[in-house]
Simulated scan of single mutants.
Amino acid sequence: MSLVTTKGMLLDARKRGYAVGAFNANNLEMAQGIVMAAEKENAPVIVQVSQGGAEHGGLEEMAAIIRSLAAKASVPVALHLDHGVDFVYNIRCLRAGFTSLMYDGSKLEFAENVRITREVVKAAHAVGVPVEAELGRVPKDPTGITLEDLKEYMTKPEEAVAFVEQTNVDSLAIAVGNMHKMKIKEAKIDIERIKAIRERVAVPLVLHGASGVPDEAVVAAIQAGICKINVHTQLNKSFTEGIHEVFNADPKTVDVRKYLGKAREALMEEVRAKIRLFGASGKAPGVPEVPVEPEAYIQQDIVE
């Protein structure tokens, strides 16, 4: 199965009431583990590469790895840019063959976020690639963040409506109490806010920072309207725990394949668990394939 865009995946998730897992990969083994997990669960999957991940592994190199895995996969696989913070980097990813982009202008004033997002959308849609944007602010470091801070950061439903209308984005990442880089599940998610935004906004909604969200809150968020869930920190934890297991068993081990093989297996099992939690297991057969072609992309009623 060839690489596909996220458009069909997310519309199908919205229609059938589940969420597609979007998992960050920083190297070959992480990307392999993610795709292997999706195949075992027969689920659509989004393999994400952040700007930091691309700088570590190489933008073109990471794109080539994931495209190669997708070509051999038995389930739909999309290659997504996670948190592209400028216009130029989004275009670089477009040229590298990414099938989904994210422009994150959440730190900007509303008007400036709209302006740049609109430009990214215009360029991506010209070649059939969907775009995710972010409104509100999801803190990237939970240290020192108070509940009052989080309330101030949260996405306002009325602003979400205006933002989507003015940018024509395909999906919207919202701030509802979620935070990045949380190592324990303590995030307090505003489910009613998700419902309020879902009632007003037609595009699929995205939840970032899911590693710190309790499982019951994840399920409630999906029921409220979340269609894509990002996971990164938890994958890093599982991956490195696999390495520690090999080292602790025999600190003299020098075969790097033993470390990375165990790490890949641990990550794969973590991804499988997340896919099941998101309700995506077994959903691959019903997902419409939307290739990177403008003519196919502009069909707005793919699954509606």
Rank of each mutant, 00 (worst) to 15 (best):
F163P: 00
A202T: 15
A160H: 07
Y153N: 09
H208Q: 13
K188H: 09
K228H: 07
E192T: 08
E216S: 11
H208W: 06
V206E: 07
R198P: 00
M179R: 02
G225L: 07
R198C: 05
G225A: 05
E148N: 15
V218W: 03
L172S: 00
A187Q: 04
V176T: 06
T167M: 10
R193G: 02
I174Q: 01
V218S: 02
A173H: 05
I222V: 14
I197A: 01
M154H: 07
K183P: 00
Y153H: 12
E192W: 05
Y153V: 11
N168I: 02
E199M: 12
C227I: 00
H180A: 11
K195W: 08
D215Q: 12
C227H: 09
V213Y: 04
K183H: 11
M182E: 15
P157T: 12
T155V: 11
A187M: 07
V164A: 09
I174M: 06
F163S: 04
L207F: 03
G177Q: 02
R198L: 10
V169W: 07
V176A: 02
E165F: 09
L207I: 11
A221F: 03
E192N: 15
I222W: 08
S211T: 15
V161L: 13
S171K: 09
A160N: 07
S211L: 04
I226S: 00
V206A: 08
K188D: 11
I189T: 03
A162V: 13
I174Y: 01
R193W: 04
M182C: 14
V176R: 00
V176F: 01
K181T: 13
E199S: 14
A210M: 02
I174F: 04
K181Q: 12
V218R: 01
I184T: 15
I197K: 04
I222K: 03
G225Y: 03
K183G: 04
K156E: 14
E199Y: 07
E152K: 15
L172M: 08
E148T: 13
A173Y: 07
A221R: 01
K188A: 09
